[in-house]
Simulated assay, not measured.
Amino acid sequence: MTAALPLPRGPISYALVSALSQGDRGSLHTFPHLGQSDVFGGDLQLALQICYELHYRGFEAVDPEWEWDPDLIRARGAMERRFLDRLHAEVSGGVDADGALAAAAHEPDGGAGASKYLLEHGTWDQMCEFLAHRSIYHLKEADPHAWAIPRLEGSVKCAFVAVEYDEYGGGRSERMHARLFEDLLQAAGLDHHYLGYLDDVPAETLATVNLMSLFGLHRSLRGALVGHFAAAEITTPPAARRMVSALLRMDAPSECVHFYTEHIEADAVHEQILRHDVVGALLEQEPDLAGDVVFGIQATELVETRLSDHLTRHWRAGASSLRAVHDLPVSRTASSVNG
């Protein structure tokens, strides 16, 4: 099932949505100049998300031929260059992949970020908001990373595919991680449809998903995509443990707990495969990719930190972290509220 086009958030996304909805190919000849548009702002990030989605499931009533429209690809390229330039400016860089992974995996005592907040202070409403944010990626979980497979060789490809095979449920559709998250959303009383919360999530959420699509769709960034995948898998288990504890405290449905329990078990194994058999072996094959791998790790940490800061800042202020309240369920029980 494909999603409807989202509501524009500024002149860039407005031009794109108008062209796609009206089928007017010529209109993108005069695509708005990016000017001083905020790279991390909602307008540009939404426009990128729309461009990338054409390579996944597309949008309702949008001609699939738009996927490779030359003017759209040209406009996307201009936005991507702005995004990449900003990311490079924000991270330290380097060629020490092991050091970059160790830095990404390091947490202060007690954990960090949104999962720590949810464990210690979160309400059920805030948990539901978090799940809505994550639905933009988790309902297509593993798909962006799959772009790396034809771009890798030999043992690196085999090890990468082994991890992806687990992400896709080991060949069983009911165990696919995307399906498990759909089950989670349904059990929580949330919209379980693909991109169901696209209009509701802020730019910080879109950037986390756009980053992996950007890396995945460019062969020249395959090292960055491997770095992203490694960073994501290595940092997941401790956060997933906190999510399990938070969900149990809130008396959440078992399907919600199961999704994160699955990630504790699976990603602990994936970490070793990715560190040694993917990242390590890739850099033995192609040592010149070390800088790209480090960039992918650091950029992942950057966008994830921006999202986590957005969530916790709003929650501490007693405000919603979403752009609009999208029929999220009310608190389940009194035990859902803590602090």
Rank of each mutant, 00 (worst) to 15 (best):
P202V: 15
D38H: 06
L16Y: 02
M176Y: 12
A187H: 07
A146R: 15
R151Q: 06
V269E: 02
E80K: 01
L180K: 00
R179G: 03
L5Y: 02
D166P: 02
H29C: 07
Y56C: 09
A207R: 10
F181S: 06
G122K: 06
E174F: 10
L72F: 10
V279S: 11
A178D: 14
R316N: 06
E120P: 03
R222A: 07
A178H: 01
D109E: 15
H258F: 03
S321P: 07
R82V: 12
L139W: 11
G170V: 11
F295V: 12
D277C: 03
A268E: 03
M250N: 09
H270Q: 15
V330P: 00
R222H: 13
L283S: 03
V209P: 05
L211H: 06
R25W: 15
A266D: 05
D143W: 08
R134P: 01
R219I: 04
D98K: 07
P238C: 15
D63C: 09
T305H: 15
A4S: 14
R86D: 07
A61G: 09
T305S: 08
H106V: 02
S115E: 08
A61V: 05
D327C: 13
A146M: 13
C158K: 12
D85Q: 13
H192Y: 00
F215G: 08
T30Q: 07
E53N: 14
Q49N: 13
W147F: 15
M1D: 15
G122S: 05
E284L: 12
L131M: 13
P32A: 13
A104F: 09
A97K: 01
A224M: 06
I149V: 15
P6S: 15
